Simulated scan of single mutants.
Amino acid sequence: MARTSDIEKAAGVLRAGGLVALPTETVYGLGANAEDPTAVSRIFQVKGRPPSHPLIVHIGGADQLDDWVEEVPATARLLAEHFWPGPLTLVLRRGRRVPLEATGGLETVAVRVPDHPVALALLSAFGGGVTAPSANRFGQVSPTTAQHVRAELGDGVDFVLDGGPCQVGVESTIVDATGEVPSILRPGGVTREDLEAVLGRPLTVHATSRVRVPGQHPSHYAPRARVVLVEPEAVVAEAELAQERGHRVGVFLPPSLTDAAVKAHAVAAVPASMNAYARGLYGLLRELDQKGCDLIFASLPAEEGLGLAIANRLRRAAGPRESA
């Protein structure tokens, strides 16, 4: 776990225009001073991320929101009061402190307060906002440990703050709060049901949206192996058929089939708890990659609670990939 001296060093790196990998409750982020366009641009270079893809600005508390956005509608204020610190990102009109480099050229900005003691300590020591997408190569599996960051980005990061494994494991829920009717642009660590309970109204979940936000690329959160989605009852048969045809097959075995014997290269048992599944999802994808699988067979969970976010990540991981 990061020491006070580590946090002070990381804050100094940010002030000097460097990049810091920081833990959050969702995934590890690749952070830069949100008000330094040069440092922000370096995030895109290190990740290989298109500059048109906006970043999330992390701040130290809901009381700082007005410093970063043009206005805060009542709905956004209500959500911030209920869910911050936490895995909820609000999309609002950009304030003048936020450079266009951080927003992908948009006049909107995504903002959140992370619920992790190390991240909050860093934001306090630094005294400003930190733009921080996931600390991995663009489109690939998000990191949930400091070791994941070091293995993937290496010297591209100036300092890695180790805050232990991430406790949520999937990225934040992104809510468009710019209009009269809020909507979910990316499901994540705050469930649709929890948001609807606070707002007292149903929310639409958009596969795509007029507002560009992180995580909407057709192929995202993807391992090297190709992910194939099938119905739960077909996972074993489809996986074994592919294995017989010469593939090195990895299997996400659903809880209903935990006792099934599977002829495959590697098998990962899916937890029955959606909290545990979300926390371990990216680690399981990385594990099957490391075991040399070239295909991963999985099925979608019920799309309720955190299952909605897990299903979203699996669909993106199985999305069409650009040819090399």
Rank of each mutant, 00 (worst) to 15 (best):
V46W: 02
E196A: 13
T145Q: 07
E8K: 14
E238A: 15
E25R: 12
L295V: 10
R226F: 02
A62V: 13
I56Q: 04
H206T: 07
A11W: 04
P165H: 09
D155M: 03
Y282G: 00
R150P: 02
V69D: 00
V91P: 04
V118R: 01
G164C: 10
F83M: 07
T4Y: 05
V270T: 00
R279W: 03
V111S: 04
V262L: 12
G179K: 14
V251I: 10
V170S: 03
E180T: 13
V157M: 07
T38H: 06
R224K: 14
A261M: 07
F297T: 02
R15F: 06
T75D: 07
P73H: 11
A132N: 08
V91F: 05
D289V: 08
R15T: 08
R137A: 09
T38R: 12
N312I: 03
G179D: 14
A151P: 00
L281M: 08
G104W: 03
R248N: 08
A311S: 14
V262F: 10
A234D: 15
Y277W: 15
V149I: 10
R3A: 15
I174K: 03
V190T: 14
H220S: 15
F83G: 02
Q216M: 15
P218F: 10
L122N: 01
G319Q: 11
E25A: 09
V228H: 04
G200K: 13
K263F: 07
L257F: 07
G246M: 12
L306Y: 01
F297P: 01
D36L: 04
S299H: 04
G283E: 14
P87H: 09
S183Q: 15
H82K: 15
T24S: 13
L281S: 04
L22N: 01
D67N: 13
W84F: 05
P50A: 10
G307E: 00
V109S: 00
L123G: 04
